[in-house]
Write a protein that binds this DNA or RNA. Structure first.
Length: 616
DNA sequence: ATTAGGG
DNA sequence: CCCTAAT
């Protein structure tokens, strides 16, 4: 049994590129897996994430961006006669399988571009991606789709196909400059690199003129058609074309080879033909795909390139936008909101507090088609944001850390930072390095490792021990949407009570300290950007409650037990006292009243001061 | 659209 | 939390 992963619709068949695009554009992934029955099954969220992790890891490793890469996954599969697992990724544009099929015929008019050549450059540069792929069991693989602006996606998946729109738009400013390849020939490497940059918006370190030329030409031409690149990962290895050998070796039961190739590559030249074949053979399950691939390219032409035309990479809409506008995030936000997953309600443009974070979020739009066959509904979601219940996690943490000490220390730090930190700790985190499912972090080392020797590529392991149940729970827990429920009187009511986590409370307190009570919208925007739920009204209400709680606590004397309701999340005394202080400050505006205790807070702008520990 | 308050 | 009045 082999597992095949098809990545269709990548703008380019290189993982690296995909990775890059992720940061540059919202990327839409479609992950579909072919199960044992040969049915297309939507990949699970975890699988999608796994793929993302893979990509991210790869990216972080930092290879040369421009070099081709090979994705290799070593997974250990049993040798048994298992059905093949296939996973397909389709670009947003492509409709899953259907799309693939079309591909061949569809593109009669291939541009003459040079194919991309991984091969040329690649071989030297190959790198392995550290990632993962999972286990053999039934589902595993993932596929990445072509990155595209989400907006595009949303708008219509087919844009890409219709070369027109995309192309037409702003992508080509450079074109004029360069008039075709002719000029490219006389350019120096440096110039080519410049051009490359101008064309693709990113630097390249590649010095190979040919390569650069091709890329540039592609970039320019590309607009006209959409590129569907297919990566085929067979077993776990992704190989570029030309690596037949590896493929062959694949038969080794344990070790699987995943071959990734771009569709174009398969067409490539002379030697290619048989390559395809092999690939084909190798991946029994996937015949369809491979065949389709081949078809695609047919004509090639004038290019200096010998290879049949590869599909050209079509710059994504977003990419174009970025080039022209230079603005990165807004589309992302829009998209997100469209999708209804307001990870961040407010762009929080004013604050630079956490641009990076936001960007990360925005930049990634994950969409999955739930339906098989590509006709389905797209279920978009922001990928990496795993929202779990902060509170639970937090509480867990708290168990180990005496609340008072912990909190106070946290408070001592700068407000924002501390709160963010808390967040991370609480598992709300968006950052990838935050706690992620263990299956990603602790890959079960597969027995397959041994087989690896084949290539120099690095292997990645995709963990796929995700169990269905786990997944289920995951899904349910991750819905951070503000689920609303129609009420009898016709209004909408929030479905779930969202207990305030300590971290949220801390944030709120900090926010009040910084911006002042009453400026809820500000606090909301600045301090609660990551909590899309929690409206400014919520903040206000919570503050009110906190205030009450803090006051209730004062009367040391007596009746505390009955009068005071225990909040679901006990608010640490230090925080309550802090609340009190803030309240005092607010009300006692007059500076005249600066007692020693309040000294630090006289100024409303005041950030947390670290003095007087006793204070907190 | 945001706030303050009451329920 | 929701709802509403007042800004």
């Amino acid at each position: 049994m082999e597992t095949v992963v098809d990545i269709v619709g990548n703008e380019e068949a290189r993982v690296q590129d995909i990775t890059l695009q992720k940061t540059a554009d919202p990327v839409v992934y479609q992950l579909v897996r072919v199960d044992d029955n040969g049915e297309l099954v939507p990949a699970t969220d975890d699988e999608v994430m796994a793929v993302e992790d893979l990509l991210e890891d790869d990216n972080s490793k930092g290879g040369t961006p421009d070099t081709g890469r090979t994705l290799e996954c070593s997974t250990s599969y049993g040798c048994g006669p298992c059905g093949s697992d296939k996973v397909q990724f389709n670009g947003s544009e492509g409709q899953s399988q259907v799309e693939e099929l079309e591909v061949g015929p569809e593109k009669p008019r291939m541009p003459p571009n040079p194919a991309m050549d991984f091969v040329e450059t690649d071989s030297q540069h190959e790198e392995r991606i550290p990632s993962l792929i999972p286990n053999a069991s039934d589902d595993s693989v993932c596929q990445f789709g072509s990155p595209e602006g989400c907006s595009k996606l949303l708008g219509g998946t087919d844009e890409s196909k219709t070369s027109t729109s995309a192309t037409g738009t702003g992508l080509k400013p450079d074109f004029s400059l360069l008039n075709g390849e002719i000029q490219l020939d006389i350019l120096s490497v440096k110039d080519l690199q410049e051009t490359f940059k101008a064309t693709f918006g990113r630097e390249t370190s590649v010095k190979d003129k040919q390569w650069l030329k091709r890329r540039i030409i592609m970039g320019l031409t590309n607009s006209c058609d959409f590129s569907t690149t297919t990566f085929v990962i067979i077993d776990n290895r992704v190989v570029k074309k030309g690596r037949e050998e590896t493929c062959k070796t694949a038969d080794c039961p344990v070790l699987v080879d995943c071959v990734v190739r771009s569709a174009m590559e398969s067409h490539e030249g002379p030697s290619t033909s048989h390559d395809k074949h092999e690939t084909h053979a190798i991946a029994n399950g996937m015949q369809i795909r491979s065949s389709t691939f081949q078809e695609n390219c047919g004509s090639k032409d004038a290019d200096t390139e010998q290879r049949p035309a590869k599909r050209v990479r079509k710059p994504t809409k977003r990419y174009i936008e970025e080039l022209s506008e230079g603005e990165s995030r807004d589309s992302g936000d829009k998209i997100v909101s469209l999708v209804k997953h307001p990870a961040n309600d407010q762009p929080s443009a004013k604050v630079c507090a956490r641009p990076v974070q936001d960007f990360e979020l925005d930049g990634r739009c994950l969409t999955r088609k739930d339906s098989l066959g590509g006709s389905g509904i797209q279920v978009p979601y922001v990928s990496r944001i795993r929202r779990s219940r902060p509170r639970e996690n937090f509480m867990t943490l708290m168990k180990f850390q005496p609340s008072d000490m912990e909190i106070s220390s946290v408070l001592e730090k700068d407000g924002v930072e501390s709160s963010e930190q808390l967040d991370k700790e609480s598992g709300n985190e968006v950052l990838k390095n935050s706690l992620s499912p263990r299956w990603i972090q602790e890959p079960p080392v597969a027995s397959t490792e041994r087989c690896q020797p084949y290539t120099e590529k690095k292997t990645i392991q995709l963990e796929k021990e995700v169990k269905p149940k786990y997944l289920e729970s995951y899904k349910t827990s991750s819905d951070d949407e503000v689920a609303t429920v129609p009420t009898a009187n016709g209004g909408m009511r929030r479905k779930h009570h969202r207990p305030w986590s300590l971290s949220e409370v801390v944030k709120l307190v900090e926010g009040v300290a910084k911006y002042g009570a009453g400026r809820w919208s500000e606090i909301k925007r600045l301090a609660f950007a990551s909590y899309s739920y929690r409206t400014s009204v919520d903040l206000k209400d919570k503050w009110r409650n906190l205030l009450r709680a803090s006051l209730a606590e004062l009367p040391t004397g007596n009746g505390m037990p009955s009068s005071r309701k225990q909040a679901s999340v006990p608010i640490p005394a230090p925080i309550l006292s802090r609340v009190r202080e803030l309240a005092d400050i607010q009300t006692q505006v007059p500076p005249s009243f600066s007692s020693g205790r309040l000294a630090g807070f006289n100024d409303s702008n005041n950030t947390v001061h670290e003095t007087s520990p006793g204070f907190l």
